[in-house]
Computed example of a mutant assay.
Amino acid sequence: MEFDFYWLLLALPVAFLLGWIASRLDLRQLKREDQASPQAYFKGLNLLLNEQQDKAIDAFIEAVQHDPDTSDLHFALGNLFRRRGEYERAIRVHQHLLARADLKREERERAQHALAQDFMKAGLFDRAEEAFKALEGTAFSTDARLALLSLYERSRNWHPAIEVARQLEAAGTGSFTQRTAHLWCEVAHEADARGRSEDAELALQRARESAPQAARPLVMQGQRLVRQGRHAEALKIWDDLMVMQPQAFSLIASDYARSAQACGEAGNALAKLQNLYLQVPSVDILTALNSLQPDADARRQALMSHISQAPSLSAAQGLIRERLATHVPLEEAEIERLQQALATAAKPLQRYRCAACGFESQHYFWQCPGCQGWDTYPPRRLEDQ
């Protein structure tokens, strides 16, 4: 039986037509499915922008049901759950994403990062640590290390925190020398609390090596020496602090003066504090300086000078204390300076504060200029409350 080419020529157009019709039907079906998902997605987005988070969640869930394979919808839903504080639901969404075998590597890393954030927010630090460590070598490795550093600091796990800070600096993320110095200081503080003096000293040395200009290691070294009765050595450490970090010296100015008196260096310490006060005038340094100053007139003059330049209650209190100690009446100029200091200190308290939004004003308002609320100002100034 011979093959008839006529039927072949007739079948080809028919097959083409049937294929075209089938493809159109598939395209329409696909188009309908694609339209359903974006509509729900944009509806959720609109609700989210209008701060209707409950309705937005419902819209995103609907979108996920229409297109369960779309990872972006899962990410949007999971992140929304996290923002709402529904961490368990966020964890389930991101775990579901990670369980998918067809997920691309970039999206899998993104889901891992989102899951780690869920654990962190939920306070599941052990699981968060594991999840962040799993991101090593990925595009999220820097973010993961920063999160781990914060996690270790919150859990007071100082040695792993120091290692992560070292890795971040080695990777060129930025300078972590100051932060590392603080971490070593925390190690020293815990070692001292446990009676491990040698470990504490070593940790403080590491802190100074990490950030030679940092103030805290010098402050702590001096304080440790004072507790051991080694006041002269403490003064040498704090002399370095005075040169390198004069702004921070006020933190231990009174300790410095007491140590100077304890080891017979009051005269030298007084001269150094006077020079420092000229560079960095502060009440703490002035108080330490006057504790070493034997001349009552010089003490009062120093207090008067400070009040005239920077009116403060602490300096005013010091002037009154000098009056009570020496029984020498205050002069009119001194009383005027005291009045100026009190007026400056009282000014921030002579305000009204809105109970609804905290807006403060010198004048009383029936309607708050900040939140537009009525009768939200208590009719009493801050100093009367």
Rank of each mutant, 00 (worst) to 15 (best):
L319F: 05
W238T: 01
L313D: 12
Q340H: 06
F176C: 08
D102F: 07
L218G: 10
W366D: 07
L276C: 10
Q117D: 10
A193W: 13
L27S: 03
A139T: 12
P68Y: 03
S361Y: 01
H159M: 15
A36N: 10
A298V: 14
L218A: 05
A76F: 01
A111K: 01
L235A: 02
L80S: 08
L115D: 07
D199G: 00
Q178R: 12
T344W: 05
G370I: 11
D4K: 14
L382G: 15
L25F: 14
A232M: 07
I307C: 09
I57T: 05
W20Q: 06
G267S: 15
K236I: 14
M220T: 10
I237D: 04
C371F: 07
F132Y: 14
G318H: 02
K43L: 06
R179W: 03
E334Y: 09
F125I: 13
A346E: 15
A234D: 03
A341R: 03
V219W: 06
A161C: 12
E186W: 02
D118T: 03
A214E: 03
R28T: 00
L30T: 02
P246I: 00
I61S: 08
A269N: 07
S308C: 14
E169T: 12
G172S: 11
A191D: 01
E136I: 04
A288Y: 04
